[in-house]
């Protein structure tokens, strides 16, 4: 089996989804992760990186976004590091899922809501002017049907 960790750097000027998706899928397939878990990892990274790029920068410069994904038995850890404006996902407001949809003017927050529901642990720190997000996801290699 190959290394249990992948890490790579993207920038806010790239099409990040097209950059990280093949890497995440190749990593997942190599380590026999269920398809559903690979989808969750892809969605989580997509939502977080989109959020950083859309709201995180006060200038028009190129900025690095660093990702590391580590697999230890049945626990996946994702580390995401960026130098955008401070953003603590743990303090982000939740969307009002009870309000009738036709009355909701503001549809924001759903991406962060999806992220919070697709991982098991979230830790945030602001270090050296960087947002450092550590996400953990547990899974059972044998539990998930991969029929899809």
């Amino acid at each position: 089996m190959s290394d249990n960790i992948i890490s790579f750097r993207m920038t806010n000027k790239e099409n990040c989804f097209q950059c990280f998706r093949p890497k995440v899928e190749a990593f997942g397939e190599e380590h026999g992760l269920p398809k559903k878990v690979i989808f969750h990892l892809t969605l989580v990274l997509d939502e977080l990186v989109t959020n950083i790029i859309d709201y995180g920068y006060a200038d028009f410069d190129e900025h690095p976004i660093d990702v590391a994904i580590n697999l230890d038995e049945e626990i996946i850890t994702i580390r995401l590091e960026d130098d955008s404006e401070p953003f603590n996902i743990l303090e982000a407001p939740e969307p009002d899922l009870e309000a009738p949809l036709e009355e909701r003017d503001h549809l924001g927050g759903m991406g962060i809501h999806l992220v919070k529901n697709m991982v098991d642990g979230i830790a945030y720190a602001r270090e050296d002017n960087k947002n450092v997000l550590l996400l953990t996801k547990k899974f059972n290699k044998n539990c998930c049907s991969d029929d899809e």
Binding site: F39, T42, L43, D46, E47, T50, L101, E102, R104, L107, M110, G111, L114
Partner: peptide, 20 residues
């Protein structure tokens, strides 16, 4: 094969307009 919150938002947009 793949949808994210932006894709969901388009569905909501359709829902909101058609509801009216």
């Amino acid at each position: 094969d793949y949808i994210n919150s932006s894709g969901l938002r388009v569905l909501v947009l359709a829902y909101q307009r058609l509801k009216k």
